[in-house]
Write a protein that binds this DNA or RNA. Sequence first.
DNA 1: TTTGTACGTCAATAATGTTGACCTATCGAC
DNA 2: GTCGATAGGTCAACATTATTGACGTACAAA
Lengths: 144, 144
Amino acid sequence: MIDQNNSKELRAAAELFFFAYRAFTSRPDQLLAERGLGRVHHRILYFVGRHPRIAVSALLGVLGVSKQALNAPLRQLIEMQLVAVEAGEHDRRVKQLSLTGSGQQLEDELTSIQTQHLAAAFGKAGIEAEAGWRQAMQAILDTA
Amino acid sequence: MIDQNNSKELRAAAELFFFAYRAFTSRPDQLLAERGLGRVHHRILYFVGRHPRIAVSALLGVLGVSKQALNAPLRQLIEMQLVAVEAGEHDRRVKQLSLTGSGQQLEDELTSIQTQHLAAAFGKAGIEAEAGWRQAMQAILDTA
DNA sequence: TTTGTACGTCAATAATGTTGACCTATCGAC
DNA sequence: GTCGATAGGTCAACATTATTGACGTACAAA
């Protein structure tokens, strides 16, 4: 299979990863742009939706960014009433973030673009390819 | 398999894609940063290496960016003598870009990090998973 | 000669990041 | 109650990687 780490096949795989990811993000990017938002907003919406009542510092951890990087887009989402904030139950310093109804709707819309794309791709590639894709992706995480 | 486009499985796949891509780019990013370079520099090195004597406008097309976005990083790589420029054979307006020796070395080093990572991941996931991954990724491109 | 093309530059702006420092409010330990 | 630690926010400066439009020079084609 592999004779050398820089083999053509592996290079082709790296290139495929780049182009596939670009294709995967391009349509959500357009919808975001129409609303004056960007990828980091989608990420916030996604992970807040995924972990209701998540604390700001936990969100920083998941997204892997600094608090300054998060502050402007998060504040924007709060001002647009897409994200709600409340003080922590056991620690008033903590801010717990949740999606509002409209926040949930937007997040669904955005993520739906991606899941529809994946559904179409997996439908085309087949069940076994899908399973292989998940396995390989998980391995990419495990070997990072 | 799939009952709804926003099903848990598809959402999990979208999330997996995000985290896997982040893992895939993080180590090359570090090496780039050590040299005062960023991802767009790597992309330039990669595609110039992939298509020796590529014209600037073709590179713009492949990377999908504007000439202004390309200009600063490309000039930097030229000044660092990682990319060489020569006028086109049949049209002196055209600038044909190639990697220098040291440019090729750096590109190899950067891409090697990625291909080694993929080799490790595919080794772990297995041959069938690798094939499935390629198929699914190609389908993501085909269904964009 | 005129029109079209390749590339570069100016300009302004934006998104998404980084680092360090400082501040207020709150918590936990003593 | 006091002191040190923590959560979050803000100021500041900066960087990377993008966008748009406009203008200019050199070159090619009609």
